[in-house]
Structures are given as C-alpha cells and as structure tokens.
C-alpha cells in the first residue's frame, strides 16, 4: 500500500490549524492573566452550539438558507459575541484570580462543569452538525481535500494571520504583548491592566468560538467535546511554550503531524501516548517550550 504522504500532511495541517486556534486562545488568556482556563474546551463547545443555532436556525430561517454569506455572518457574530462573553466572564468570575494560578484554575473548573451541564440541559446531549457549504474537492500535490476542509485551513490561516497582525502592528495588540511580558513595566507606562485582561479573555474566548465555527461543518459538536480540545491545547502550549504565539503555531503543526501520521501508522492510543510523552519530554528538557518565556 502506497503511503500518500501529501494526504497525511494535508490532514496534519487541517488538524493543526484548528488545534492552534484553540491553543492560541488558551495561551493568550494565560499570558495576560496567568490563569489556566480549564473551561476553554467548554467555551469551544459553546461556540459550536452557537454556530448551530445562529447559522442553521436563525440565519437560515430569516435570511435564506445556509450559504456563504450566512456562514461568514455567523463567523462575525460568534466572534463579537464571544469577545463580549470574555469581557463578562472576566468581570464576573476571573477578576479576583488574575495572577492566582490555582485559584483561577479551580474557578474555571467550576465554571466549566457548570457550563457543560447548562449546555446539556439547554441544547440536549445529542450531537449536532451543520452542513458545509464549500463543495467540491481540491487536489493538491496528489492529496485530495474536500472543499470544506480546505476552507477550514484557509480561514484558519487568515484568522491566525489576523491575530498576528493585531498583536504586532496595532497599538492595542502591542500593549497586550507588553502586558503579557512585563506586567509592572507595562502598567507604569500607563497601560490599564484591567482593560487588557478583559480584552485578553475576550480574544481568547473568541478564538475558541471561531475555531468551533470552522469545525462544526466538518465535524460534530456535543456538550462533551470540550475536554478533548482542552487537552490538545495543553499539549500544544507545552510544546510551543506558555505565552508564545510562534510556539503555538509550531506546537499545533507538530500535534497535527503526530495525530495524522500516528493515526495512520500506529493506533490512536499509541499516538496519544506519543503526544503526551513529547509533552513530558519538553517539560523536562525545555520547560519553556520552544519559544516560551519565564513564568512570573
């Protein structure tokens, strides 16, 4: 049996893009607030449900059937909604725990459990899916990829690039980067930490939400998918380094490769163990990840 390397790589990229988006959200929250948001996976799941209801139910009903415009509208709506969600969560729950790793972790665990049950009660435990609208297949270097999956990669790449530009070129983005690296120095320059941490959680949630918007047409969502994505995000962040943008990209790509190649050549449990073993090796040999910073 010939191994279609290109196919494996394309699959790796597709997986990697999604995982990277989720991981970027998590690492952003950590960089600014020094909190590991254990509810990040549930927020992702919430994004999936938001996609389902907004895209499939409301937009389709009121603005004509599922289509490109409605899809991009959904993307935008979810983005904005989740930024607001992040603002709200920061004020309501996370504010007292900025800098408090254990406390923030536990409160996010509580929130995650509550959110997951709330979603189960509200939306039901069944899986939900959304039809894709990008039809057709592309063939790239001998690898076939469905139009929808290609859209995931392209849109994901666009979002990641957008985030990068935001962080490096806009005033707010630069301020956020400054806060994540040297909180006191940034504050003495007049940057308002409260605004930054709200924005950080906002963008973090928005990234998780948008990742779900991209994934739901290809995969399904139910209230319980959160933890799997949380774990992937953890793995990426450890490999790439807590608080590092480039590290997330790198880690996401590596994880994509492990899952794609591992799933093909080995079985799932073994490829999972490989992922985790790499995580542990990194934490031992290079705890800051490939690009990480010193933790405060």
């Amino acid at each position: 049996m010939d191994t279609n390397w290109a196919q494996l790589i394309i699959d790796a990229i597709q997986l990697g893009v999604i995982y990277t988006l989720v991981a970027l959200g998590l690492t952003m929250i950590f960089s600014i607030m020094n909190v590991i948001n254990f509810a990040h996976g549930e927020i992702y799941a919430l994004g999936g449900f938001a996609t389902y209801y907004i895209f499939l139910r409301y937009l389709s009903t009121y603005l004509g059937g599922p289509g490109f415009i409605n899809y991009f509208l959904t993307l935008g709506i979810v983005f904005l909604l989740f930024i607001l969600l992040g603002f709200f969560l920061e004020k309501a729950i996370f504010r007292p725990f900025r800098g408090n790793l254990l406390g923030g972790l536990l409160v996010s665990v509580g929130f995650g459990a509550a959110l997951q049950t709330a979603m189960t009660l509200t939306f039901g435990p069944e899986t939900k899916g959304v039809p894709g609208m990008f039809s057709g297949r592309l063939v790239v270097l001998g690898a076939a990829i469905s139009g929808q999956r290609a859209a995931v990669v392209v849109l994901g790449a666009v979002i990641i690039s957008g985030l990068y530009i935001f962080l490096k070129k806009t005033k707010i983005g630069i301020a956020m980067t400054a806060v994540s690296q040297e909180k006191e120095a940034a504050e003495s320059l007049g940057i308002d930490y409260s605004v930054m941490s709200s924005l950080g959680l906002g963008i973090g949630c928005a990234l998780a939400g948008i990742a779900a918007v991209l994934v739901v047409p290809v995969n399904y969502v139910d209230p319980f998918v959160g933890h799997a994505y949380l774990m992937k995000a953890f793995i990426i962040i450890v490999i790439g380094g807590l608080g590092s943008f480039v590290g997330c990209l790198f880690g996401g790509f590596i994880l994509g490769i492990i899952e794609s190649f591992g799933g093909y050549f080995l079985d799932m449990p073994t490829s999972n163990i490989i992922s985790f073993s790499i995580v542990i090796s990194f934490l031992i040999l290079r705890p800051k990840g490939l690009f990480g910073r010193e933790e405060k």
Binding site: F30, I36, L102, V238, L242, F276, I280, L283, I284
Partner: peptide, 21 residues
C-alpha cells in the same frame, strides 16, 4: 523543579498516559 503551571500540566499529561496505558 518545574514551576507551578508547568508541573500542573505535566502531571495532567502523566494522568492521561497512565489511563491510556
């Protein structure tokens, strides 16, 4: 010797490795 958050993450990884194994 790892700092708090990193130790937490690696223990998380270990728990999963044990479960999978």
């Amino acid at each position: 010797r790892l700092r708090g958050a990193y130790f937490f993450l690696v223990s998380f990884a270990l728990c999963e490795i044990i479960r999978i194994s």
